[in-house]
Amino acid sequence: MLEKKEKVLLKKAGAEVEKAKEFTKGKNKKAAIQCLKRKRLYEQQIEQLGNFQLRIHDQMIMLEGAKATTETVDALRTGAATMKAMQKATYTENMKMIQEALSAPIGAAADFDEDELEAELEELESAELEEQLLQPATTAPAAAVHAPAGRQPTRPVPAKPTPEEDELAALQAEMAL
C-alpha cells in the first residue's frame, strides 16, 4: 500500500515539474515556484513513506526474530519436558534394577534351587511327623524302681563337686549309716 502511494506521489511530483516548466515557458514565475513547492511537499511525503517502509521492514524483522525466539523457547520447553520424562523413566528403571539386584541371592545362596529346598523341607517335616507318631509306642512309662531300705540309689558324682554338693554328699553318707 505504501509502495502504491509512493508511486502516485512520484507521478504527482513529476507532473508538478512539468507544470513548472510550462509556467517557466509562459513567463509565469510565481506559478512555477508554486509547482516546485508542491513538488517538494510530495518529495517530503515520499521520504516519509520511505521511512515508514523502513520501520515496517525493521518491525517485520523483529517479529520474525521474536517468532524464531518463541519457537526456540517452545522447542526447549518441549525438550526439557521430554528429558524430564526420560529421566523419570530412567530413574524408575534404575530403581527397579537396583531392587532386583539387591533382592537377588548372591554367592552360594544363588546356587540353591527353590524346588529342591522345598522338597527337602517336606522330607524333614514328614520325618519329624513319623518320629512323633512312633515315639509314644517305643517309650513306655518306667516302673518305679524301689531300692531296698537303707540303700539309696547312687548317682554319678561330677568330677569336681561344688562345696554345696560336698555338704549334700556328707549328709547323705551320715543318713545311710
Rank of each mutant, 00 (worst) to 15 (best):
N94D: 12
A68K: 04
Y91A: 15
K67I: 02
L102T: 06
M86D: 15
A104T: 04
K88T: 11
E93T: 08
M97N: 14
E71M: 03
A75T: 10
T72A: 11
Q99A: 07
S103A: 10
V73L: 05
M95C: 11
Q87M: 10
T78G: 06
A81G: 07
T70R: 10
E71F: 02
M83Q: 15
N94E: 11
I98H: 02
V73T: 05
A101W: 01
L76H: 12
K96D: 07
E93F: 06
R77P: 00
T69K: 12
E71N: 07
A75D: 10
K88G: 06
K96M: 07
A85N: 05
Q87I: 06
M83G: 09
E71A: 05
A81T: 08
A85D: 07
M86E: 15
R77F: 12
Y91N: 15
M97L: 15
T69N: 12
T90V: 09
S103Y: 01
M86F: 09
A85G: 04
A85L: 07
T69V: 07
A101K: 02
G79H: 01
Q99Y: 04
T69M: 05
T92D: 15
A68S: 02
G79L: 00
D74E: 14
M86S: 15
T70M: 14
M83P: 02
R77G: 04
A101L: 02
M83A: 15
A75E: 04
A80V: 06
E100M: 03
A89C: 11
A104I: 00
T90F: 14
T90I: 13
A75S: 13
S103E: 06
S103T: 07
M83W: 10
E71T: 03
T72S: 14
Q99T: 11
M86A: 15
D74L: 08
R77E: 12
M83H: 13
A80T: 09
M86H: 14
M86N: 15
T70Y: 15
V73R: 03
